[in-house]
């Protein structure tokens, strides 16, 4: 992993001409606030959120028809 020191207001450019720029906006004791500029085809995710959404989607794909049918009955009662 490349490790760099940046001060508030300083930026990084990732990729030459890739249009990705990360700027340190604010530093706290336990956080940094970053500004990210990137072309719209490059998605920016909080890593743990991406991991959770990925896991939830994969878990959803293993739901059985039977369990979904049982839930359908439950939700109908609720509605």
């Amino acid at each position: 992993m490349l490790v760099l020191t940046r001060r508030k207001g300083e930026s990084l450019v990732i990729g030459l001409g890739a249009g990705v720029e990360v700027t340190v906006l604010e530093c706290g004791q336990a956080f940094v606030r970053l500004g990210i500029q990137a072309p719209r085809e490059i998605e920016v995710w909080r890593k743990e959120i991406l991991a959770e959404v990925t896991e939830a989607n994969r878990a959803a794909a293993s739901v059985s028809r039977e369990d979904a049918a049982a839930l359908e009955t439950l939700l109908r009662k609720k509605g």
């Binding site: 939830a56 989607n57 059985s64 369990d67 979904a68």
Partner: peptide, 10 residues
């Protein structure tokens, strides 16, 4: 997107 526990307790 829905996630259900496997094998019951939907």
């Amino acid at each position: 997107v829905l996630v259900l526990p496997r094998g019951g307790r939907p």
